[in-house]
Amino acid sequence: ELREAFRLYDKEGNGYISTDVMREILAELDETLSSEDLDAMIDEIDADGSGTVDFEEFMGVMT
């Protein structure tokens, strides 16, 4: 189920989504998050600083 959700956002099928897209997902899930909260969450999610979120990083957030 998580893989299907990931595929919805990984429109190009390249195995990752951008941190911008991940930020939008988080904002949709919790509309009360401030910009600073979102920045901090993205920094934590994208631990390797690649600017992308792969499936493993995505799973870590969603579980």
Rank of each mutant, 00 (worst) to 15 (best):
E1R: 13
E1D: 15
E1C: 15
L2E: 04
L2Y: 10
R3F: 11
R3K: 14
R3T: 09
R3A: 13
R3E: 15
E4Y: 06
E4L: 06
E4C: 15
E4P: 09
E4T: 05
E4W: 05
E4A: 08
A5P: 02
A5C: 15
A5W: 15
F6C: 15
F6P: 07
F6I: 08
R7Y: 13
L8A: 15
L8G: 15
L8T: 15
L8R: 15
L8P: 09
Y9I: 09
Y9P: 02
Y9S: 04
Y9C: 14
D10C: 12
D10H: 00
D10V: 03
D10T: 01
K11S: 11
K11G: 06
K11T: 13
K11N: 08
K11M: 10
E12Q: 08
E12R: 02
E12T: 04
E12S: 05
E12H: 06
E12Y: 05
G13W: 02
G13N: 09
G13I: 02
N14T: 09
N14Q: 08
N14R: 12
N14D: 06
N14C: 05
N14L: 13
G15W: 03
G15H: 02
G15F: 03
G15L: 03
G15S: 02
Y16K: 06
Y16S: 06
Y16E: 03
I17L: 08
S18C: 05
S18K: 06
T19F: 14
T19I: 14
T19E: 02
T19H: 06
V21P: 00
V21Q: 15
V21D: 12
V21W: 05
V21F: 07
M22P: 00
R23P: 00
R23H: 01
E24Q: 15
E24F: 12
E24C: 15
I25D: 00
I25V: 07
I25G: 00
I25A: 04
L26C: 02
L26N: 00
L26V: 03
L26A: 02
A27V: 10
A27F: 10
A27G: 08
E28M: 14
E28L: 12
L29I: 10
L29R: 13
L29Q: 08
L29D: 02
D30Q: 07
D30C: 10
D30P: 02
E31I: 11
E31F: 11
E31P: 15
E31G: 13
E31D: 13
E31H: 14
T32E: 08
T32S: 13
L33T: 03
L33S: 03
S34H: 04
S34G: 06
S34W: 04
S35Q: 13
E36A: 12
E36Q: 12
D37P: 01
D37L: 08
D37W: 08
D37N: 06
D37F: 06
D37Q: 13
L38G: 00
L38W: 03
L38M: 07
L38D: 00
L38H: 01
L38K: 02
D39G: 05
D39E: 08
D39Q: 08
D39W: 06
A40H: 14
A40M: 11
A40W: 10
A40K: 13
A40Q: 10
M41A: 06
M41G: 01
M41P: 00
M41L: 13
M41C: 06
M41K: 08
M41N: 00
I42S: 01
I42D: 00
I42P: 00
D43V: 12
D43I: 12
D43Q: 13
D43P: 03
D43R: 13
E44A: 13
E44L: 14
E44Y: 13
I45V: 09
I45T: 04
D46N: 08
D46Y: 03
D46F: 03
D46G: 03
D46P: 01
A47N: 08
A47T: 10
A47G: 08
A47Q: 11
A47D: 05
A47P: 10
A47V: 11
D48V: 05
D48T: 08
D48K: 08
D48L: 06
G49E: 07
G49H: 11
S50M: 06
S50I: 04
S50K: 10
G51W: 02
G51I: 01
G51A: 04
G51S: 04
G51E: 03
T52L: 08
T52G: 05
T52A: 05
T52W: 05
T52Q: 09
V53G: 01
V53P: 00
V53M: 04
V53R: 01
V53W: 04
V53S: 01
D54H: 08
D54P: 05
F55C: 02
F55I: 09
F55W: 09
F55T: 02
F55M: 07
F55V: 07
F55D: 01
F55P: 01
E56W: 10
E56D: 11
E56V: 09
E56L: 10
E56I: 11
E56S: 09
E57I: 09
F58W: 10
F58L: 04
F58E: 00
F58Q: 00
M59D: 02
M59T: 08
M59R: 11
M59K: 11
M59W: 05
M59I: 12
G60W: 15
G60I: 14
V61R: 05
V61N: 04
V61Q: 05
V61L: 12
V61D: 01
M62R: 03
M62C: 12
M62I: 09
T63G: 13
T63N: 11
T63K: 12
T63S: 12
T63D: 07
